[in-house]
Amino acid sequence: MTAITRVRPAGRARGDGKRDPFRATPLTKIALGFTVLLSAFPIYWMIIIASRTNSDAVDVPPPLLPGGNLGENVQRVLNTEDAHFLTGLLNSLIVTSTVTVSVVIISTFAGFAFARLHFRGRNLLLGSILLTMMVPLQQMGIVPLYQLMVSLGWVGTLKAVILPYLLNGFGVFMMTQYTDQAVPEELVEAARVDGASTLRIWWNVILPAVRPGMAVLALQTFMLNWNEFMWPMIVLTPENPTVQVSISFLTAAHTTDYVLIFTGTALSVLPLIVVFVAFGRQIVGGLMEGAVKA
């Protein structure tokens, strides 16, 4: 992962003193600090409300420090039966993991084929994938997809929110670019000369080399899918929701219970924040690497 070395600005500019264009001015630092504060504030605000009471939530002036009711509020969310919050959380984990694994595998396969194999119609097919990336499938297909799910009897089941997401044109595109950068053509040919079959090459040569790219794609797919809202909202029911749908039902059923809604919301982003804290460095590195390699 060459991004790590690239991340450090060239050290040799250090001695140049005033004329160093990469020197951060105090103004830059203040602006960055302010941006980080702005980025963190709504999350902080979520915690404030989630740890207070409903009358605090509509107080003027607004409360600016967290209160002491977080534990009680979390308990209340979990005890609010009609929100099916834990079901939603578990469902989201199931749906998002399945989709992520599928997208990564499908994209790695296809990326290998497009980047390093030679077959008739390759450019045409790759071009068609690029075109379909522009189709907003969830909006375009919403009516027929819904009718399809109704006729299959899949409304309200997780199948309905997993299957349409198993593929992702962006993933194929990204893995094609990544494979092209990460796997030298000669390596594949050398393996061929040794008599390796295509699948063996994929396993022995491609897979080890593109693993970082797969990880980046996995993280991106996970975050994207965790957020899916429109289609799950239409096709799922309150009894068996994903976490986003569960929260939207929570907001509809408990309008003035801001504390309950905010606590649920905070719990819903918790898994993502945990992933972010644990893998922050990798996510930043991966995003940046993905951005330049693909």
């Binding site: 960055l32 941006t35 980080v36 980025s39 963190a40 709504p42 999350i43 979520m46 975050m223 965790w226 957020n227 809202f229 976490v243 986003q244 929260i247 939207s248 919301t265 905070a266 819903s268 982003v269 993502l272 924040i273 992933v275 972010f276 922050g280 996510i283 930043v284 995003l287």
Partner: peptide
């Protein structure tokens, strides 16, 4: 700073 500016990405749209 990099993590700081990326923080909003890991919240959910609904949140």
């Amino acid at each position: 700073f990099r993590l700081g500016v990326l923080l909003p990405l890991v919240t959910s749209v609904v949140a």
